[in-house]
């Protein structure tokens, strides 16, 4: 019975890891795509500011990425630590 309990906990942790990373990847993916789209539009409008706009795009995407990294951290914690 004790083994079953551990088995159940492990199963839940694995499922949780997959769901955390899977769902957690949706938001950053879409968000960074929006940033990329608007950056391309802005550079199209004003190509001589390309360097500044690329930098801004990357900073914005990095911030948006953070939630994806949170999901990754939680998934790894669920897999290896908990």
């Amino acid at each position: 019975m004790a083994i079953e309990g551990i088995d159940l906990i492990k199963a839940a942790a694995y499922l949780g890891a997959g769901v955390a990373m899977g769902l957690g990847a949706i938001g950053p993916g879409v968000g960074e795509g929006m940033v990329g789209a608007k950056a391309c539009e802005a550079i199209g409008r004003n190509p001589q500011q390309a360097a500044l706009l690329t930098r801004t795009m990357l900073v914005g995407q990095a911030v948006s990425e953070s939630t994806g990294i949170y999901s990754l951290v939680i998934a790894l914690l669920l897999l290896f630590v908990v």
Binding site: G24, A25, P28, G29, E32, G33, V35, G36, A37, A39, C40, M57, L58, Q61, A62, E65, G68
Partner: peptide, 8 residues
Amino acid sequence: GQAVSQST
């Protein structure tokens, strides 16, 4: 931009 979006 796509590469960053791909990372997730």
